[in-house]
Design a protein around this nucleic acid. Structure first.
Length: 103
DNA sequence: CAAGTGACAATAA
DNA sequence: TTTATTGCCACTT
C-alpha cells in the first residue's frame, strides 16, 4: 500500500526504460512535486531492493552519476550504465541531451 | 514546536 | 565555466 512518497519514487525509477536515465528533479516531478529531488535521493539511499531499483539510472541534473555514494562503486555505476547502453563520459557524466528519459 | 540535516536544483557572481 | 548561495520539502533529533 505504501501511500508514501517513497514507493512513488521506486515506481517512477522503475519506469525508466533501459538505456536511459532520469535526473532527481525529473523523478521528483513525476512524483508530483519538482522540489522533492532531495527526498528522491534519500529514498534511493534507503534502497530496500537493490537490483530492483535501478538507482544507477538516476543521475544529477547536470548528468553526473552519484559517484561516491554508489551502492557498489562508481566503477560499477559506469559499467551498469554502459551495460544498459548508456555512454558515460570519463568524468562519470552522461549526455542528458540524448539519454534524458521523458525528453 | 523548533532547529538541523540531506544520493538536489536553480540562480547569481 | 566553476564556485557559492538560496530554496525546497521531508525526516530526525
Amino acid at each position: 500500500m505504501e501511500n508514501g512518497f517513497f514507493d512513488r519514487v521506486y515506481e517512477v525509477i522503475r519506469r525508466i526504460p533501459r538505456g536511459k536515465v532520469a535526473t532527481y528533479g525529473d523523478v521528483a516531478r513525476l512524483c508530483g512535486n519538482p522540489r522533492m529531488a532531495r527526498q528522491v535521493g534519500w529514498a534511493l539511499h534507503c534502497n530496500p531492493m537493490p537490483g530492483v531499483n535501478p538507482c544507477h539510472r538516476v543521475v544529477f541534473a547536470n548528468g553526473s552519476v552519484c559517484t561516491g555514494f554508489a551502492f557498489g562503486g562508481k566503477d560499477v555505476q559506469k559499467s551498469l550504465l554502459e551495460e544498459e547502453g548508456v555512454v558515460v563520459s570519463d568524468d562519470y557524466k552522461i549526455d542528458l541531451s540524448v539519454y534524458r528519459w521523458g525528453a
